[in-house]
Amino acid sequence: MAKKILVIDDEPHVVKYITAFLEDSGYDTCSASNGEEGIEVLKKEKPDLVTLDLQMPGDTGTRFYRNMTKSKEFKDVPVIVISGIPGRHLAVSKPVAVFEKPIDRDALLDAVKKSLGE
């Protein structure tokens, strides 16, 4: 069965882009446009990996991450941070990878495969 990836970004265009690319690479995807919705989708879809957009201080992405790492069930789901702001991933303690926009698709795919142990 294909692994499932949750894409969180409040820009619908970015969600479309990343999900399209991941689907073409053979993954199932689901998406959310903010952190609150992200938690709901997380519970429902139980993804194997999350890509998270982090940019504004106090934004919902940071909160999403905090909630996720607090839950027993999901705390070990790998997170890849996709951010427009270099060096701002500090809010997340240990993302498996950090990408700046615009993303390098091949590098993203490598990081996804590696964190899924493929």
Partner: peptide, 14 residues
């Protein structure tokens, strides 16, 4: 421009 690049990248891909 970086973010717009991302948007253009995405648009072209789609």
């Amino acid at each position: 421009l970086k973010n717009i690049m991302m948007g253009l990248d995405g648009g072209i891909y789609v």
